[in-house]
């Protein structure tokens, strides 16, 4: 049972700030506040932990895109009712993939299920191309083995994302 409060900070996990990534740190959750700057710091921490060991030009490109969309959704939807609660991010490298576990304590997914992620089209809007609705499409396009659970007030989204460049 995870408690929402421990280790909640302004962004970076304190023990990891300014140090080179170590195996022990890789297991520590990244905990950020649910706001746009919290999302930025979580993504920066993800890069700090995994960039040095990832081969190739930018093997974290897909991971950063998927994580940004997942975390933005928590900020904009799960905590939309004025909450500024924590988001916990657990990351683990598994060969050529990044294993991701995102937890929050906001509202559950509507009907308890993940959005379909259909691509919005020009036909959906009367005034030209859509300006939104791309988030879940990108998540579904890039993430693998998505699973969502809601237990004891906690949302938990788990998936894998290939460590591959754009």
């Amino acid at each position: 049972m995870t408690h929402p409060d421990p280790m909640r900070g302004g962004g970076l996990t304190p023990s990891n700030a300014g140090q080179s990534p170590a195996d022990a740190d890789a297991a520590l959750p990244i905990v950020v506040d649910a706001n746009p700057m919290g999302v930025r710091s979580a993504l920066a921490e993800m890069r700090a932990r995994f960039a040095p060991t990832a081969p190739g030009p930018d093997m974290l490109g897909m991971a950063e895109t998927v994580l940004a969309e997942v975390l933005n959704n928590v900020v904009e939807h799960a905590y939309r009712r004025g909450g500024n609660g924590p988001i916990e991010l657990r990351l683990e490298r598994c060969g050529g993939r990044l294993k991701v576990d995102v937890r929050d304590y906001g509202d559950p997914m509507p009907d308890g299920v993940l959005p379909s992620g259909a691509l919005p089209t020009c036909e959906d809007a009367e005034d030209g191309p859509p300006e939104g609705g791309f988030g879940w499409f990108l998540i579904r396009a890039l993430a693998r083995d998505l699973s969502y659970t809601r237990e004891n007030g906690q949302n938990r989204l788990r998936f894998f994302v290939p460590l591959a460049d754009a």
Partner: peptide, 11 residues
């Protein structure tokens, strides 16, 4: 590359 991919995936 990453920006190009977002434009391409979303058409």
């Amino acid at each position: 590359p990453n920006v190009e991919k977002v434009f391409r995936l979303t058409r």
